[in-house]
Design a binder for these strands. Structure first.
Length: 628
DNA sequence: AAAAAAT
């Protein structure tokens, strides 16, 4: 019986977005050379253009282009820039340590290119015949920027270990209405006990149960098998069913034994079941799906491991390029330990390298939806043999704009293939995918992983709008790593400039930057070369950087899940972290509602620049903060 | 509003 309930045909129209196209082309061209502000290098007066209060997309792009293209010149120009500004704004902080303006400090490059042996290029095209016609694409421009990412294993994302709370209400769960699994999949591990369920478990597909995007409701939690952390303390990967090579690779990644979410999901993944996994931010979800996925491919792979042009058998989808890259940094060494290959397929970089890897043959693809669809349409990527598909940040992948491409991609994979959905905020928003693609999924979470047991201190500062930027500057003027979230790219860019002008080393991360700049800027925070990153929500989910101890939300999030993910960039590895959200007075009520949905307790304090509370927050978070 | 494909 085919698993797909919907016909594979009838592709919806492409989600072509003209404004997106404008932004992209705007970002490349030099239609607006130079800065618009007189204080900046390369300023060109443009009297013809009327002064605008806000930047439009093109200006933003030009600004981004300037920032990214500036290179060293930009840097050498900066200090004098500052001199012209006159005396620094004073907010009673003359004790600020002198910042070094030696900005020629780009991250060390390690030419981490693909370490596989050079392949002989057979003149052979064993690609299967495609049904759709491929118009001959023009030659792609060759751009050196797509070198492989630097390897930096941010391995240490261990959660706090000792909690023992099993007080979640038992939920009923009934799958009588699920299609039966084919008999040949009956060899899986015995089902764990599930209580019967009374009604429709999921809201009907593609309606989100009538909620609009504006309703920040907490969709009903998926009832899950709760694993008690204390019960799986010290469980080895070997005892979960993973082979010795993989276990050793994991140990090298800094994971000698399994985390709770890993202990919970790995056996079911190995048994071939569809799995939904919810684990707190930084709880080790990547290994939870990555390691058993590799084990399964190896078991089924047989002797054709190294075959040229073999088709990929596993696909891992992520919502952002940075996350895809990071996932690959974890999965690749695991895969390589058993002779399997991974490749990254995402946009923003030339495709030739990715295509070359596919032609040589890879086993696991890690990527983002756009480029994957692109390559499928070009006939350069064939997912028909993909038998394991993973969606990281699965609930986000079901949001508007992501869902349809994701559905189209999954429909290209082998029917009946295994599906793994993971997220820290997994909820019924994934129903559309579950209903179409999953069969009797097992659902796992870890007991006691709630906000009360977290190591994060939450504050809300109620601020006057005119004080906001100065307050952010004071918050960012500190020693530890600080991550600042803004709602828009333009504001992220503006804040970055402001911080730099104040002598605080900061870089930006958002979609107006080209990919090499994005990668570099994130790397600069990871390596500690800068201590402040100002980002849009591109950095909200999944990105792991060691030792971020302060998250500042320059704009409050609209959704409680966004709050949880942004906050989850700190307090990792069981360390203390702090989250500060700036809101205007008028937003207090909305913010309180959001926090209650997130099950977070936080004090609201009115604050102005220079207030003690601001200086205190800029200091080190302490254990006392968590207990008061 | 952001993200995800270029041209």
């Amino acid at each position: 019986m085919p698993k797909n309930k919907k016909p594979a045909g009838g592709r919806p129209a492409k989600n072509f977005d003209p404004s997106y196209a404008d932004r992209r082309s705007g970002g490349k061209g030099a239609q607006r050379p130079g800065s618009r502000s007189p204080g900046h290098r390369g300023h060109r007066a443009d009297d013809a253009a009327p002064r605008k209060a806000r930047w439009n997309a093109d200006e933003r792009a030009a600004r981004a282009a300037e920032r990214s293209g500036g290179g060293r010149d930009e840097r050498s120009a900066r200090p004098s820039d500052r001199d012209e500004r006159g005396p620094r704004r004073s907010f009673d902080r003359d004790d600020r340590p002198q910042r070094s303006f030696n900005r020629d400090d780009r991250a060390q490059r390690s030419f981490d290119r693909d370490d596989r042996a050079p392949r002989r290029s057979f003149d052979r095209d064993d690609r299967p015949q495609r049904s759709f016609n491929r118009d001959d694409r023009p030659q792609r421009s060759f751009n050196r920027d797509d070198r492989a990412p630097r390897r930096s294993f941010d391995r240490d994302d261990r959660p706090q270990r000792s909690f023992n709370r099993d007080d979640r209400p038992q939920r009923s769960f009934n799958r009588d209405d699920r299609p039966q699994r084919p008999a040949d999949r009956g060899d899986r591990a015995p089902r764990r006990e599930q209580a019967p369920r009374s009604s429709n478990f999921y809201p009907s597909a593609n309606t989100s149960a009538g909620f609009t995007a504006d309703d920040d409701v907490v969709l009903e939690r998926l009832e899950a098998q709760a694993t008690v952390a204390a019960d799986v303390e010290g469980v080895t990967f070997g005892s979960l069913g993973l082979g010795g090579n993989i276990e050793r690779a994991l140990a090298e990644l800094g994971a000698p034994t399994a985390f709770p979410i890993q202990a919970a999901t790995i056996p079911d993944v190995l048994a071939g079941r569809d799995v939904l996994g919810r684990g707190r931010t930084g709880s080790g979800k990547t290994i939870a799906f990555g390691a058993p996925l590799v084990e399964k491919l190896m078991e089924n792979g047989g002797g054709k491991k190294r075959q040229m042009g073999r088709k990929p058998r596993a696909l891992i989808l992520a919502p952002t390029r940075e996350l895809a890259l990071q996932i690959d940094r974890t999965v690749q060494p695991i895969a390589r330990s058993v002779g399997l290959f991974t490749t990254q397929i995402y946009g923003g970089v030339p495709q030739h390298r990715q295509v070359g890897a596919l032609q040589r043959g890879v086993d696991i693809i890690v990527g983002t939806p756009g480029r994957i669809e692109d390559l499928i349409e070009q006939g350069r990527l064939d997912l028909s043999e993909v038998t394991v598909t993973v969606l990281d940040e699965a609930d986000h992948m079901c949001d508007l704009g992501f869902l349809e491409p994701v559905q189209r991609i999954i429909r290209q994979t082998a029917p009946g293939g295994q599906k793994l959905l993971f997220s820290a905020t997994l909820d019924k928003g994934v129903a559309a995918l579950v209903n179409e693609f999953l069969t009797e999924p097992s659902i796992h979470e870890v007991a006691g992983e709630d906000q009360a047991s977290s190591t994060i201190d939450h504050r809300v500062l109620v601020v006057e709008h005119r004080n906001k930027d100065m307050l952010i500057e004071q918050l960012a003027d500190r020693d530890g790593k600080t991550l600042i979230f803004s709602r828009t790219r333009a504001y992220a860019e503006r804040l970055t400039d402001q911080l730099e002008d104040a002598g605080i080393r900061a870089v930006a991360l958002h979609g107006d930057l080209n990919q090499s700049r994005r990668t570099r800027n994130l790397q600069q925070l990871t390596s500690g070369r800068v201590s402040v990153l100002v980002a849009t929500d591109v950095a909200a989910r999944g990105i792991h950087v060691d030792d971020i101890d302060l998250v500042v939300q320059a704009d409050a999030p609209d959704e409680y899940k966004t709050y949880l993910h942004r906050a989850g960039r700190t307090g990792r590895a069981g360390k203390e972290g702090r989250v500060v959200t700036l809101i205007p007075r008028s937003r207090r009520r909305r913010m309180a509602d959001l926090l209650s949905r997130a099950e977070i307790e936080a004090n609201f304090v009115e604050a102005a620049p220079g207030d003690d509370v601001v200086l205190e927050i800029a200091g080190e978070p302490t254990v006392e903060d968590l207990t008061d």
